[in-house]
């Protein structure tokens, strides 16, 4: 909100902690609507970094920009030292093989069963024998607790199960990082608890780097090492969750505590109620 209150993680990052994703001066618009207006973000390697903000602030767009599915108007995004938007198609696809992404909908291929969905990237990019591929897929499914569901079709899965299958698929090629797009949206408390635990466990066990886009404050703060709060096309504040909870910024406090009114007003801009009711305004 107040630019003066921004806390630069890039500046406070210990020098020995390498950065996996480096975003500098990111500008992106859709039509006349400015989504990002000079965003700088550093995603440290081996950590769970959360990108938080209200709906419609461009969190999913940010993941698509990192994955090279969208191109910025200005600015650079480097992943593991490679400028994503300067890469040719082949190099970009090679980089994507080292990235996993969990879509909000799961994005499972509906005509394949659970086993084949997880096996898909392995079949596409490796020449493993069928028995080795089976073992790998079963291990990935075991990690998300769905080995027994391998014969089910995506239509037979609950929302939480579909996201766990998608997570197993995202891990299939043992990527260096996984991007999670709103993984907790629409989940019942049990599924949410399972996903929260899985994201943290997988990050630590597989030494991944996780980028978690969400507006579920409690769940995200429970597992994130670092949080970026974005709104109005800029990074409002960033730091460890504990630091943000005690932030002096009114905006951050309103978001973290879910207050209905504050710097982000409850009312959409409108003329005075009296003027509207008594016909003085059009």
């Amino acid at each position: 909100m107040r630019q003066g209150q921004e806390v630069s993680v890039a500046g406070s990052r210990p020098p020995d902690e390498p950065v996996l994703v480096k975003i500098r001066g990111l500008h992106f618009s859709r039509g006349d609507r400015k989504i990002f207006d000079g965003v700088d973000i550093d995603i440290p390697r081996g950590r769970v970094t959360a990108i938080m903000g209200p709906s419609g602030t461009g969190k999913t767009t940010l993941l698509k920009l990192i994955g090279g599915q969208l191109a910025p108007d200005r600015g650079t995004i480097e992943v593991d030292g490679l400028n994503v938007h300067a890469l040719g198609r082949r190099e970009l696809y090679r980089l994507r093989m080292r990235m996993g992404m969990l879509f909000q909908s799961g994005a499972l291929l509906t005509d394949l069963d659970v086993f084949e969905n997880v096996a898909y990237p392995l079949r596409e990019h490796t020449r493993l024998s069928e028995s080795m591929l089976r073992k790998l897929v079963l291990l990935k499914l075991e990690a998300v607790g769905l080995r027994g569901a391998r014969h089910l079709k995506p239509a037979e899965l609950s929302g939480g199960m579909a996201r766990r299958v998608a997570l197993a698929r995202a891990m299939a090629l043992d990527p260096m990082m996984i991007m999670y797009d709103e993984p907790f949206t629409g989940q019942d408390p049990i599924s949410m608890g399972v996903l929260v635990k899985l994201i943290r466990q997988l990050n630590d066990a597989a030494r991944l780097t996780s980028i978690l886009v969400s507006h579920d404050v409690a769940e995200t703060c429970a597992i994130a090492d670092l949080v970026y709060v974005i709104s109005g096309g800029r990074v409002i504040e960033s730091g460890p969750p504990e630091q943000l909870r005690e932030s002096g910024s009114e905006w951050t406090r309103q978001f973290m505590q879910g207050l209905p009114d504050g710097p982000v007003p409850f009312h959409y801009p409108a003329p005075a109620l009296e003027a509207d009711l008594f016909g003085e305004a059009a």
């Binding site: 599915q69 990235m99 992404m101 909908s105 509906t110 998608a166």
Partner: peptide, 14 residues
């Protein structure tokens, strides 16, 4: 619409 095409892209499959 169900992001399957985006999913393929992110799996490095054209």
């Amino acid at each position: 619409a169900t992001e399957q095409l985006s999913g393929l892209e992110m799996m490095a499959v054209d």
